[in-house]
């Protein structure tokens, strides 16, 4: 009973985080903050929900011969958790990098400079700067 209650608590916590991720992916202004909401909220909520179900599988552990397959299923769920823990973070990183190279600029407050892309004048003329630097280096 206690274990069922605990697993329900974990699953509900996961749903709350998923709600946060959904609101974030809908409401945030630019690609990178949406990516942030999707990557973090999505990963954590998935881990929590599957952990809740894995805990529920272990509820009658002390009973008898049925517990062997239950432990096996719970272990497989732990494998899924471990896999998603690695894979979700990696795909978030790869997608953010691809989005940066795709030309998405973060939305920043006025008066603040976009430090990712360097100072503004060099950023607008990035191609010129690149060419100038190579020209300077040649004898």
């Amino acid at each position: 009973m206690v274990i069922s209650f605990l697993s329900a608590l974990l699953i509900l916590a996961g749903l709350v985080f998923f709600l946060g991720a959904g609101v974030g992916i809908l409401r945030f202004p630019d690609f990178f903050s949406r990516m942030h909401a999707a990557g973090k909220g999505d990963t954590l909520s998935t881990l929590l929900i599957i952990a809740g179900f894995a805990l529920y599988q272990m509820r009658d552990l002390g009973d008898s011969e049925a517990s062997v397959s239950a432990v096996l299923v719970a272990l497989k769920m732990l494998v899924i958790i471990a896999f998603l823990y690695i894979a979700s973070a990696t795909s978030t990183s790869a997608l953010a990098e691809a989005g940066w190279e795709d030309g998405n600029d973060p939305v920043i407050a006025p008066k603040h400079e976009n430090r990712l892309a360097g100072p503004p004048e060099s950023r607008t003329a990035a191609a010129d700067l690149n060419r100038n630097s190579t020209h300077d280096s040649q004898p």
Binding site: F83, A87, T90, E97
Partner: peptide
């Protein structure tokens, strides 16, 4: 440089 993150993760994931 681009492949470091994905490559390290895949080193774990591919055998599994």
């Amino acid at each position: 440089r681009h492949r470091v993150v994905v490559g390290t993760a895949c080193r774990v994931v591919v055998p599994l």
